[in-house]
Design a protein around this nucleic acid. Structure first.
Lengths: 249, 249
DNA sequence: CGGGACCTTGATTATCTTCAATGCTAGTGG
DNA sequence: CCACTAGCATTGAAGATAATCAAGGTCCCG
């Protein structure tokens, strides 16, 4: 368990993405910020690429991603694998209990997580109707539930091309909310293989679909960075009514 | 712990399925039962087949299904439709806010729903760590989240045949928990069209897949009633490790 | 008996997977 | 510096799965 500081990559506080996420749903006061920072501290773990987080999550009820990408997936006996969620800095990871066997969580990139147990317990029991922190947290949970619903629609009724556009817009939206990127850009430090397992496609078809999106001028994909030069066109390709994603102003 | 046999035309209390669901997760006392029954009363609405519930849900924050089946789905502009959840007596319906536009809820059969607003508000704010009702409710919410995750895996990585078996087992499990059927039987009062929209398949392919399951002796499907004569085989077909679904004892 | 909703079937086509190479790039050790 | 390797991206060809199109068929109900 190395205990290096994430500040060697950025000098902002590890809770900053979560603070930005929460601030997007409610005006937070100084005391709210304090509770976030106090509730998430220590128990820092650095995960190498591919490292499993299952045991860590079994030990600590909730971990904040401070840096890196993490995936949660169901795995079948014959090796087929469906990624259920892609998690970024600002996301809280909780054990996949109750989801049945064969679920696993692992780091897609070098990642750092922090014990957020105290924050988690505090905010999950936050019922004071006037608590802004509690309200913001409930909204985040609701948005995550909505993402599961969206993925169901994606996998059930969209073509490979539409699915890909749809996921990229979701990642764009998610990264904007956490303050991890600017409008029109998406960090995408993962292999096409992982993308394929998120979208229920084979790696080969994933590759071909990406090429088609490139040819159509909807994405520029290079070196772990994605550019979306035509958000309007991409939304159309994803079959999203423009109201479906957060406005990008 | 009533163990009465399921009865469709029964005069049992409309909250009975929910009570059985909750009782499956915690020993409930007399006062818990009281709170359920008091929190869910009046505001009864009868819905004809195909009736939209969107407006009703906008008016009342939570409605208990007392009778019948209800579906929640995302609809695309070109008519494609993906059912996200099938809801049965004992389920609480809440507005599909935050899920983005184009979500809709409608009755698949004749149905009756009751205003459960008071119960909903009470139980969502239930944080006393020793509250059995609150604990049971949180478990139900967790199970529903797990069902969304399972549907993602189903749609993303299972074949039509596997998907169908998988969904039938989920419905079997769900109906057992609510005391709506007996082991080996599943109420299925819906058209193959609806089934297809749940599983992301065309109606034609749905039909052929059902025939295959029949030929393989895994299901008997007649008149809105499904029999599962070979649960072990069905679990195998669904690629479920036997630990994945509730034991049927 | 006519109509409508639902189920079933056959033929054809589209989408996506699988299999098998090949290319590319960065890191590694001689 | 140069093979050498490993991981990832890309390509072509063939095959499987599922969608689409177009009829019938069945059952129920007014």
């Amino acid at each position: 368990m190395t205990n290096q500081s994430p500040s060697e990559f950025s000098n902002e506080r590890p809770t900053a993405p979560l603070e930005r996420l929460l601030a997007g749903y409610a005006m937070l006061g100084h005391s709210d910020i304090e509770r976030i920072r106090e509730g998430i501290a220590g128990g820092e773990i650095a995960h190498g690429v591919g490292a499993l987080l299952d045991d860590d999550l079994r030990r600590t009820p909730a971990r904040l991603i401070a840096k890196g990408w993490v995936a949660r997936a169901g795995v079948l006996a014959d090796g087929r694998r469906q990624i259920v969620g892609l998690h970024l800095p600002g996301d809280l990871l909780t054990p996949a209990e109750g989801e049945g066997g064969d679920m696993t969580v692992w780091a897609l990139t070098e990642a750092i997580t922090i014990d957020a147990g105290r924050f988690w317990r505090a905010v999950e029991n936050e019922t004071a109707p006037d608590s802004r922190l509690g309200a913001a947290w409930r909204q985040i949970r609701e948005v995550e539930r909505a993402r599961l619903v969206h993925q169901i629609i994606r996998l059930g009724r969209l073509t490979a091309y539409e699915r890909t556009a749809h996921l990229f817009l979701e990642l764009h939206d998610k990264q904007l909310r956490a303050g991890l990127t600017d409008t029109g850009a998406v960090q995408l430090p993962i292999t096409q293989d992982v993308l394929a397992d998120s979208l229920g496609l084979s790696a080969v078809h994933m590759n071909r679909t990406l090429q088609q999106l490139r040819r159509d001028g909807l994405i520029v994909y290079r070196g772990g960075q994605l550019l979306l030069p035509d958000l309007r066109g991409l939304r159309q390709a994803a079959r999203l009514s423009s109201a479906n994603e957060a406005e990008t102003r």
